[in-house]
Design a protein around this nucleic acid. Sequence first.
DNA 1: CTCCATTATACTCAATTTGAGTATAAATAG
DNA 2: CTATTTATACTCAAATTGAGTATAATGGAG
Lengths: 305, 305
Amino acid sequence: MAEGAQTIHAELIAVLVAVTQGVPRVLTLADGSALPEGPLEPTHRSLQSGLRAWVEQQTHHPLGYVEQLYTFADQARSAKAPPEGRSISISYLGLTREAAPQGAISWQDWYRYFPWEDRRGENKREPTLMEARMREGLARWDGGDVTRRMRVASAFGLDGVAWNEELVLARYQLLYEAGLVHEAARDGRAAHGEPVPGTPMVADHRRILATAISRLRAKIKYRPVVFELLAESFSLLDLQRCVEALAGQRMHKSNFRRVMEGQNLLEETGKFTSGPGRPAKLFRFREAIRAERDITDTRLPTVRT
Amino acid sequence: MAEGAQTIHAELIAVLVAVTQGVPRVLTLADGSALPEGPLEPTHRSLQSGLRAWVEQQTHHPLGYVEQLYTFADQARSAKAPPEGRSISISYLGLTREAAPQGAISWQDWYRYFPWEDRRGENKREPTLMEARMREGLARWDGGDVTRRMRVASAFGLDGVAWNEELVLARYQLLYEAGLVHEAARDGRAAHGEPVPGTPMVADHRRILATAISRLRAKIKYRPVVFELLAESFSLLDLQRCVEALAGQRMHKSNFRRVMEGQNLLEETGKFTSGPGRPAKLFRFREAIRAERDITDTRLPTVRT
DNA sequence: CTCCATTATACTCAATTTGAGTATAAATAG
DNA sequence: CTATTTATACTCAAATTGAGTATAATGGAG
């Protein structure tokens, strides 16, 4: 940080999220191994508008909410960069609804990349087979070191620490350091056991995805952004299922209702669902909320049913 | 976002914060009108390490905590950029302790730029003269428009809405739109009254500072980062004063103690303060916490004494 | 040495918010 | 018309919060 400019190559990377029938999905290149990215065009007024334009052209669907995630410029990233310069990647999180993918892109269940992050199926708290294997590998890595052991415990909710669904990145990072994800082997790290299940991605894309999930899981707790993922009108259960899909955790039904209804975020449409069981009221988000998304608080109840 | 690279100029901008005797301060160029910035050097391994190196060289003081804030690339910013290309600015928030400034830099009270953000002095909730003037200007701007009026109310805590200290950026943005800060006039916006008190800064530096304050005020509530601003050992009152300085709000003493002591973040040093009044226990932050900053939760009590 | 101003620390208590249930209502499928 | 399914309404104890009051330990003034 002193004098002189240099040639720099800038790319945008997008993590586009949709939730379809209880499955949180992310837009990827066709085979699911990479996030969509492309160079920053001179024609774009701003980063945000550049990204918006590109996404809407690709997906033919409006992009509801966009948020900047992180900017990377490590030299490790500059493989594709000009010889003398370096490459900067600016990543974004975008919320949208799923549309038929065009061309070489496809929607993938994000838990495909992070199977351990989906805890909606768990009942009596018997660890899954996968969890058991993961713990073994991590234990082999900590090898009794107290600091390491504590990091593992607080990230994965062991030794009496509660599971925190926001720590997606911390968990991925730890698995990477322990050599338990494929990317670690690829980057030449020592492994401490079989890789944990979960599809790898190109370069650091899986880490970027983890960052996005962390951010989103945190954000839905205090800002009304979930509604960008839902249809125009929805029942309280639809809303709950959507939140649960993102958080990877089941929630208490009555409490969820109580919290949501007490916040003046929703208004009734006057219509009802049909189908098996008692019809549910359909709601929509109050339009004023959308305009003040950045200012309006939201609360969500915590875990389990 | 399609093909072709271009020449891009990248800069780092730092918002360095320290708290000295109840005053939150920010490192600026000597006259206080700009934040320190400089081009990204090819020698830096990563953005973060580049910033760290630069800051430590300038201030001769270690930089405790660093966090990326936001990356801008609006064409409005590219005045200094190469003719055909554009300029990207990556901004950072850093926490440190104040040291004698070297060369052309100086520490400034951040409330100098945002006088309305300091509400520690307020007692009976009679609006300040400044506040009254500000409200007038904002009312002139909303001109009865319901949406505008609501934005103002929720950002500034009017019409029964509670003041939210995190909305620093929203408030600055609103004042800018209403033409009530100097930068607005400079950029050729229509004014709706006298500019509100508060020193302007070059380009969008004041907005960046607002972003930093927002982030920091939010962060101290859930991550243990305050201790980067405190001396090695401190009393509970020192800690409280530091948090209050950042939040711009006074807090309830007993409740502050209760929350801080119930969290296992602190450990006693065995020493005590001296001076007027009963000596206070001196604490330090548990070292393990520093290592797991990104994982460990913190809670803070809310407002007022 | 005593009293006072000053700050620290310990308790108290009501109001609210949470977590976890149970009970009742309104549909559809056979 | 009965079982099944989902929605919605209540209940209740535990925990957390907001706002105080009471007591303890200093240094300084007289």
